[in-house]
Design a protein around this nucleic acid. Structure first.
Lengths: 132, 132
DNA sequence: TCTTGCCCTGACGTCGGCGTCAAGGCCTAC
DNA sequence: GTAGGCCTTGACGCCGACGTCAGGGCAAGA
């Protein structure tokens, strides 16, 4: 399979695949004409990368998973190094969610305060002095 | 007050202030020698910007707040345009937190599954075949 | 006067993950 | 043989919010 087909089957672009190769993440064999050649295993690696990317993992963070698969393990997370990344990511997510939740609360409080000070926004019908 | 002092009092850098000016967000008067000159009002504007930035607002999103203050209002969020930004930001935060929470759950599930398949990680003491 | 410290403008660097264009090679169908 | 579609490498563009450096001006104290 050539680069275009692999990209299409993984729902990505040839540019992305060349980028992964430049990062050493998904090297390719070459045919006689210099074209990159991939097989079904490469598709599995690529899908592993894409899944993690969709989860917000940095490209570097997907490396242990890819190497795990390449080492012959059944899943990308069948190796300790992958679990370490999982746990680190969970901690990052927890911290981030916590921060965002805090910010959300503060913004909501500011909004409530400002709306109270400047009415007419959420409640166009104001009972003060409306004689018409 | 000159740019260095303003930066110091707001806990930021001169580069940042020049950047804000280049974006038209915080223009400065100039002294005879060409030096930027600021007053206490500018410090208030700058602190408004910084507060929102800390909340994760884009620089452009702080503009209504700054213009509101510059228009003479007591608070940056005393204007309808600022409230619109607040509400939009709240919606963005809700969406983002929801997504992150979903991802967190999926990652946690993957971790649990992988740990079950490959023990020895979290529980170094395994009761299987440990006769020593 | 000379040094020190602040100021000025202009412009390139950073980071991640690619998009996009340029110039050309390979292969197939017509 | 030629048009079209795939492939190749190389390299610049993008986004946001600045960091950092280069080269030079202005002001004040020793």
């Amino acid at each position: 399979m050539r680069i275009g087909e692999l990209a299409a089957r993984a729902g990505t672009t040839t540019r992305t695949l060349r980028y992964y190769e430049s990062r050493g993440l998904l090297p390719a064999r070459r045919g006689d004409n210099g074209y990159r050649t991939y097989d079904e295993d490469d598709l599995r690696l690529l899908r592993q990368i894409r899944t993690l990317q969709d989860f917000g993992f940095d490209l570097e963070e997907t490396r242990p998973f890819v190497e795990c698969l390449r080492a012959g393990h059944p899943e990308g997370d069948s190796c300790p190094a992958s679990l370490v990344v999982y746990r680190r990511k969970l901690a990052e997510l927890d911290t981030l969610i916590e921060q965002l939740t805090s910010v959300r609360a503060q913004v909501a409080a500011q909004l409530a305060r400002a709306e109270a000070a400047v009415p007419g926004g959420p409640e166009p019908k104001c009972e003060l002095g409306g004689h018409a």
